[in-house]
Each structure stands twice: as structure tokens, then as C-alpha cells.
């Protein structure tokens, strides 16, 4: 009361004191201490740091790098193609097709990826030859190379997950869009191609990027069936010189590089396809990303490496 009657009163200028954010200073201090301890620990670790860059560019490592990249791209492509087909069958009004698609997803999603790799790789134990009656026939052993086994194992597994992503995309579309397409005489095929798929893309694309990032890392499983990729390269290196940690870290660095490239690609693809035209505020002057996220957003979104990059369109993300 006394202050109000003070000469300055309500009419005068009263200074505003911002809330003191002690928590930030405190947390920064704690993190700094922990970080210092980590550096201290690493500097005393029995790791020959200077060997890591050397292993990083070993021939076997570079061969493994291409092996990883090739396998990830092939598996993801197979997964997308099969996944879209399975999703379309799943949405089919033909109950037989829909049920088969459900069963496919159920099986390939239900069995651990590593186990699927083993099954494909050892298929020759169960079937001596592989082929199609009257068209071709080949001994399974020569057909089922590590690459083919890894491609089938990872690709089919991915297709089951991808089918669910595509299905979520289909489900995100208002049924009114389909009715409008019908009302102007579009056939079901044309409705799928012209109305449903293009609109579902917005929901499908962000998780696709996540899946690809997961796929890059999942290819390391193929090392157990002796496919030459990064982890196998690391194994080759430490088998000869016993520098296990150094070789593993060199491989880990390559994975980080690949994942960073993929994250960058994901960012631009989302920018291109992800614009939300049903939301007027994101439509003004081109590009929803700009208005939604502002400058520096790439690092905000992917700063931690990418595996769990946020998807703003759907909740279909999954862990493999």
C-alpha cells in the first residue's frame, strides 16, 4: 500500500525484472562437469586414437562402405515397392487379397530380422534347388548369395513395415475425397493414382526417411551371414591386428556419415513433398517448412543424428 502511494505511483515508469532462470545455469554446470569427466576417461582409455583415421580409409572399409550403401538402397527400394503393393492389397475390397496381405505383414513383422536373415541364407538346407516350374532352376546354394539373402531378409521385413506406413497414409485421407473422385466418374484405379496416393505421400514420406535411416543401420546384421559391409570390414581389421575398439569406431564413424547424408536427403524431400496444403497458414508464399520451422531448423530436427527424427505427420514410426 505504501508503495502505491509512493511519489512514483502507477503513473511513473516501473522497472520489470525478468524471471531468473537458475535451472539453466545449474544444468549447464552439471553437463560441463560430466563432459569433462568423459573427456578425461576417454583420454585414459586404451584406444589408439591415431589408428581410427587409418582404419577409416582401409580398402576393406571402403569396400564395406559400398556394400552397406548398396544393400541399404536395394533393400529400401524393394521394401517400398513391395510395401506399396501389399498396402494396396490390404485396402482391397477383395477379402482374399486383404487377408493375404494381412498374413504377409503378420509373418514378416513377427519374426526377428536377424532370424529372417539366417532362414534365407540357409534356405539351401531345405530346398536343394530353387526355381519356377518350366522357366528356370538353379541350386539354392549358388542363388542364395549373402547379398541375395540379405536383400530378401531386410527387404521383405521392411516391406511389411512399409505397408503399414502406406496404409496409415491411405487412412489419413478423408473419405469425401474418394467420393468426390467417384462422383466425377473416376475408376478405382484412377482414384488411387490421382487422388489417394498423391495426398497420402505427405503422410508417407517422413516415416520413409526414418525407415531408410534405420535400414542403413540394420544392414550391419548382414555381417553375420558374411555379407561384406562396414561391420564385417571392422571385423576383418580387428581379426588381423586385435585393435577391436579402434576398428569398431571407424565403422561407427562411417555409419554416422551415411546417416547424416540420409538425414539431409530426408530434409529436402520432406520440404518438397511434405507441404501441407490443407493447412492454410503453411501455404502462404511457398513452402510449409520455412514458416513452420524457420532458419536453422535442420539442426533442430536432426541435430542428434536422425534415428528418431520427429515425424510431424503421423505416429507410424517404429523401432526395428
Amino acid at each position: 500500500m505504501t508503495e502505491l502511494t509512493n511519489s512514483q505511483g502507477l503513473s511513473g515508469e516501473i522497472a520489470i525484472v525478468p524471471l531468473r532462470k537458475w535451472g539453466r545455469w545449474l544444468s549447464a554446470a552439471v553437463i560441463l562437469i560430466l563432459f569433462g569427466l568423459l573427456i578425461f576417461a576417454l583420454s585414459h582409455a586404451q584406444i589408439k586414437w591415431s589408428d581410427i583415421p587409418k582404419f577409416f580409409t582401409y580398402d576393406t572399409m571402403i569396400k564395406g562402405l559400398w556394400g552397406t550403401a548398396l544393400l541399404a538402397i536395394c533393400c529400401q527400394t524393394l521394401g517400398i515397392v513391395l510395401g506399396v503393393i501389399v498396402a494396396i492389397l490390404r485396402a482391397s475390397r477383395n477379402p482374399v487379397m486383404s487377408w493375404c496381405a494381412w498374413l504377409y505383414i503378420y509373418i514378416f513383422r513377427g519374426i526377428p530380422t536377424l532370424l529372417q536373415l539366417f532362414i534365407w541364407f540357409n534356405l539351401g538346407l531345405a530346398f536343394k534347388t530353387i526355381g519356377f516350374p518350366g522357366i528356370f532352376s538353379e541350386p539354392t546354394i549358388s542363388f542364395m548369395t549373402p547379398f541375395v539373402a540379405a536383400l530378401l531378409g531386410l527387404g521383405l521385413n521392411e516391406s511389411a513395415y512399409y505397408a503399414e506406413i502406406v496404409r496409415a497414409g491411405f487412412n489419413s485421407i478423408d473419405h469425401g475425397q474418394v467420393e468426390a473422385a467417384k462422383s466425377i466418374g473416376m475408376t478405382p484405379t484412377k482414384t488411387m493414382r490421382r487422388v489417394i496416393l498423391p495426398q497420402a505421400m505427405r503422410v508417407i514420406i517422413p516415416p520413409t526417411g526414418n525407415d531408410f535411416i534405420n535400414m542403413i543401420k540394420a544392414t550391419s546384421l548382414a555381417s553375420v551371414i558374411s555379407y561384406h559391409e562396414l561391420l564385417l570390414s571392422a571385423g576383418n581389421i580387428y581379426a588381423s591386428n586385435f585393435e577391436i575398439m579402434e576398428a569398431l569406431m571407424a565403422a561407427a564413424l562411417w555409419y554416422m556419415v551415411l546417416v547424416s547424408i540420409a538425414s539431409l536427403g530426408q530434409y529436402y524431400i520432406e520440404k518438397r513433398f511434405g507441404s501441407d496444403r490443407s493447412n492454410p497458414s503453411s501455404m502462404t508464399l511457398g513452402g510449409s517448412m520455412r514458416s513452420r520451422m524457420g532458419p536453422g531448423s535442420f539442426f533442430r530436427r536432426f541435430g542428434l543424428g536422425g534415428g528418431g527424427a520427429p515425424t510431424d505427420a503421423t505416429g507410424v514410426g517404429h523401432v526395428q
Binding site: D174, G176, Q177, E179, A180, V195, Q199
Partner: peptide, 8 residues
């Protein structure tokens, strides 16, 4: 349609 259903 009541809800227009334009292709968004």
C-alpha cells in the same frame, strides 16, 4: 457434397 470435398 455438404463438405465440398475438393481435392485438397
Amino acid at each position: 457434397f455438404q463438405r465440398f470435398n475438393l481435392f485438397s
